[in-house]
Computed example of a mutant assay.
Amino acid sequence: MTIDDIPTRLGQVQDRLRAACERAGRAPDSVALIAVSKKQPAEAIRAAYRAGQRVFGESYLQEALDKITELSDLDIEWHFIGRIQSNKTRQIASHFDWVHGLSDPDHARRLNDQRPPEAPPLDVCLQINLSGEDSKSGIAAEQASELLAVCDSLPRLRVRGLMTLPAPSDDEDAQRIPFRALRALRDALTTADRRLECLSMGMSDDLEAAVLEGATHVRIGTAVFGPRPYN
């Protein structure tokens, strides 16, 4: 596996997405591919960019900031998909277009207050912990309304939808269960004044199940970039 393989691997993922959309009776452009580039070098991101990819996800802030600076000549849409820490909210608010994984009212207020005034509102997805695993970030489904109410009062944040990271499974039917639950929760929380159109769910091993249950954003790392890091 080399950086030269990235365009081929990216094409294979796009083929999987198209096939999944066809199975679901959905338009191919209804699902955005977030290429998760954490622990990958900047040249790997450039290779994917040259192959047409424009949306990238990072989880480790300092590593991400270095790459954002190095790749500032490219029109990349940057998504922060890692664990949020209070001492890092200013940099996240300043350098990213999206945040997947908001689960703390204090973090929401900090991101709002620290978002640069010249930037558009920060797009966020609330992270829902559907499995109840202590090792996973996110709030319980029954806490979502309370966090949404906090975010509704913050003009520099724009809640776009929900995100989840379910327990892994090799069975597609089992994979679909938490994705279906997230979609149902999103639908229940959507109102005329608050349209939650986004479902950030699905990774390399379960993107088909996620698309079948309505994913609008899939977060794909290994299938695009291969093992990390490169030699």
Rank of each mutant, 00 (worst) to 15 (best):
T2S: 15
G11H: 02
V13L: 08
R16H: 10
L17N: 02
A19K: 15
A19W: 08
E22G: 01
E22P: 00
R23C: 04
D29R: 11
V36D: 04
K38G: 12
K39F: 13
K39L: 14
E43H: 13
A44Y: 06
R46Y: 07
A47I: 05
L61T: 07
A64D: 01
T69Y: 09
L71Y: 01
D73A: 15
W78R: 00
R83P: 00
F96V: 08
W98N: 05
H100M: 08
P105N: 12
N112T: 02
D113S: 15
E118H: 14
L122S: 03
L122G: 07
L126S: 10
N129R: 01
L130I: 14
I139A: 02
Q143F: 01
S145D: 14
L147G: 02
V150A: 06
L154R: 11
R156D: 11
R160A: 12
L165Y: 11
P168S: 05
D173G: 12
I177M: 12
L182H: 09
R183E: 03
R183L: 06
L196W: 05
M203P: 13
D206I: 04
A210S: 07
L212C: 09
L212M: 11
E213T: 09
A215N: 10
G221H: 07
A223C: 03
V224Y: 02
P227T: 14
